[in-house]
Design a protein around this nucleic acid. Structure first.
Length: 631
DNA sequence: CCCGGAAACT
DNA sequence: AGTTTCCGGG
């Protein structure tokens, strides 16, 4: 089933899987918080303050009381409530703003509404410091004043007829690739997603992309999570609010979102609304109509095809060929990225049954082998071996990724995440928990997912070291002041077990199903960012390795700059910390500054992780391929 | 205050 | 799954 026949492409079922959990229809704390936040009446109790998404609980007891009332838990208190809040850390829904009492920050990145594909995430310029949130009004308003009214899963949108299955699929697919799609757990998503599945169309909106992706900008799909629609629960009588915000489809979040949106600083990306929408969008409102939606979807579809938004999807469609961009110059054109993805996707492994031959068809300019990474990891034991090594060699641009994916780290549990901006990262949890992993090089993290990448990285590092060129390695230059790591990564279910399930398994990835088969491996999302002069031009005939290194370094740097997201798992974090210690680095003062360690950059391979790694690899590979060709 | 593990509850 | 409850530790 992965790919059903279809006019266009169909994504495998697993791709459509609702990312979320079935359903907890009960109000969730974060929803509740958002509700309070958007109501002026509660401004004295809780309010947006500070950075995007940052809010302060001015009256903890009161908030707790309200929450307790809502949940019928009279014994609720701030201590308990805060514990619940803490559980969001790992879910990436929230972060603690360190140093500020009672202050937390939403990771809105992930919260973007699915329903509101048109949202302009910032019209490109979202100042990072956007107003904390305009609680009241302000620009941050989400287009439809009541999203719920407009988009939330409702009828209007739902005209099934309008959206072809393809479109729908596309949308979904894109969604999936988005960060969370893969993932899964975002509660956010679940809020809306699950129920809908049946509804179909709604989901389609989730991933919509702007029709035209600016080359420069990278585009991403934002999985949104906000509204909860579907079978909606009735407003609870308990609700403190006269009118229960939640109830409406998507109601709750509506206002809230705005902040969210605004918050999500998506630096690089400028999300361009569909043409028709754009103008309106800019304003705070936009009108939505089916025609627009149709166009939008079409565009989206195209985008998907062309840009291969959904890496995963592509895996299944190895045959898809993307036109090569014509771009002689060294700089990395977005096009490349775009193109790359597909290739990678179509990898043999993934294809497995699908006839790997086809993939080979791609002319791969060069082939090279990486040295096998030093093994010795504990992991190996458990069958992980399977994956292994093979990954070390790759051919052509695409394959790398595939192989890596296919190979997949044995026992690692990966939690993919979203991708939005750099923020997103994948969480990886190494089940085997070997510390060793990490320590050997910093990179483990990134590699987890794609061993290849890691290896690659390793090599590079080694190489660099040899050359005495460490600087370029992965150190992330930037140091955000203290940004919390906003990443948002949502966890994804597990990785493919053994063998198999690699993403593309023709046999059906999901196959089993069970669980989330969404193995989201690392799907490299590709960010099409324009990297204007950043990238140092790479001369064409440099040895591959070097080039790779350079590329890698550069990319890393860039990414680091972009953000260090760090959404790591605690475990990961812990590992890192350990590593850090081992390494003996003196940290900067904070030790862990926030979840996101500043250190990360230096020490670890930016946790950017797989996704990044993958994309990096893809990119690099692709580029190299091209370059090489020249040689 | 804040953090997170553990266990229980729904 | 998402808390709620309890709690030791920083």
């Amino acid at each position: 089933m992965k790919t059903s026949a279809d006019p266009g492409f169909a994504f495998p079922d697993w791709a459509y899987k609702p990312e979320s959990s079935p359903g907890s229809r009960q109000i969730q704390l974060w929803h509740f918080i958002l509700e309070l936040l958007r109501k002026e009446e509660y401004h004295d109790v809780i309010a947006w303050q500070g950075d995007y998404g940052e809010f302060v609980i001015k009256d903890p007891d009161e908030v707790a009381r309200l929450w307790g009332a809502r949940k019928a838990k009279p014994q609720m208190n701030y201590d308990k409530l805060s514990r619940a809040l803490r559980y969001y850390y790992n879910k990436r829904i929230l972060h603690k703003t360190k140093g500020k009492r009672f202050t937390y920050k939403f990771n809105f990145n992930k919260l973007v509404l699915v329903n509101y594909p048109f949202i302009d995430m910032g019209s490109g310029r979202v100042p990072q410091s956007a107003p904390p949130v305009p609680t009241g009004n302000s620009h941050f308003r989400f287009p439809p004043s009541t999203p719920s009214d407009v988009l939330s899963s409702n009828e209007e949108l739902r005209s099934p007829g309008m959206f072809s299955s393809v479109a729908r699929r596309m949308a979904r697919g894109s969604v999936s690739d988005c960060s969370d799609g893969t993932s899964t757990n975002s509660e956010l998503e679940e809020a809306m997603g699950a129920e809908e599945r049946g509804a179909g169309p709604d989901r389609a909106y989730r991933g919509l992309l702007p029709p035209r992706l600016p080359h420069d900008s990278l585009f991403r799909i934002y999985p949104a999570v906000l509204g909860r629609h579907g079978p909606r629960v009735h407003p609870d009588s308990l609700s403190p609010f006269p009118v229960s915000p939640l109830p409406g489809p998507g109601g709750l979040l509506g206002s809230n979102l705005s902040p969210a949106l605004s918050m999500t600083p998506t630096p690089h990306m400028s999300y361009t609304p569909s043409p028709s929408m754009s103008s309106p969008m800019l304003g705070s409102h936009f009108s939505f109509n089916q025609e627009d939606m149709k166009h939008y979807l079409q565009a989206h579809t195209q985008s998907v095809y062309n840009y291969h938004l959904s890496p995963r999807a592509f895996l299944h469609y190895p045959n898809i060929i993307i036109p090569q961009p014509h771009r002689p110059t060294p700089e990395k054109p977005p096009a490349h990225h775009l193109h790359c993805p597909p290739l990678p996707l179509s990898h043999p492994l993934s294809q497995q049954s699908a006839g790997g031959d086809e993939r080979d068809q791609h002319p791969s300019p060069f082939k090279f082998k990486l040295q096998p990474p030093p093994l010795g990891r504990k992991q190996r034991d458990s069958g992980s071996s399977l994956a292994g090594p093979s990954s070390s060699s790759f051919t052509g641009s695409s394959q790398i990724i595939n192989s890596s994916l296919a190979t997949g780290p044995p026992k690692i549990k990966v939690e993919p995440i979203s991708d939005i901006d750099s923020e997103e990262e994948v969480q990886v949890t190494d089940i085997s928990e070997d510390d060793e992993l990490n320590h050997s090089d910093e990179e483990e993290q990134g590699g987890i997912f794609t061993p290849t990448a890691h290896h690659y990285h390793h090599q590079l590092n080694s190489h660099l070291r040899a050359n005495g060129n460490m600087s370029s390695l992965s150190a992330p230059p930037h140091s955000h002041p203290e940004e919390d790591p906003d990443d948002d990564v949502f966890k994804t279910p597990a990785t493919p077990p053994i063998g198999s399930s690699s993403i593309g398994g023709s046999s059906g990835i999901g196959g089993g199903g069970g669980s989330s088969s969404s193995s989201s491996q690392a799907f490299p999302l590709i960010n099409l960012k324009s990297e204007p002069g950043h990238v140092a031009p790479i001369s064409p005939c440099i040895p591959l390795k070097l080039r790779f290194k350079r590329r890698w370094s550069e990319d890393q740097k860039m990414e680091a700059d972009g953000e260090r997201g760090e959404a790591e798992d605690k475990k990961v974090r812990a590992d890192r910390e350990e590593e850090e210690k081992r390494i003996g680095q003196a940290e900067n003062g904070g030790g862990r500054g926030g979840a996101g360690g500043v250190i990360l950059g230096l020490m670890l391979p930016p946790p950017p992780t797989q996704r990044r790694a993958s994309s990096e690899l893809q990119r690099a590979t692709a580029q190299l391929s091209l370059e090489n060709t020249g040689c």
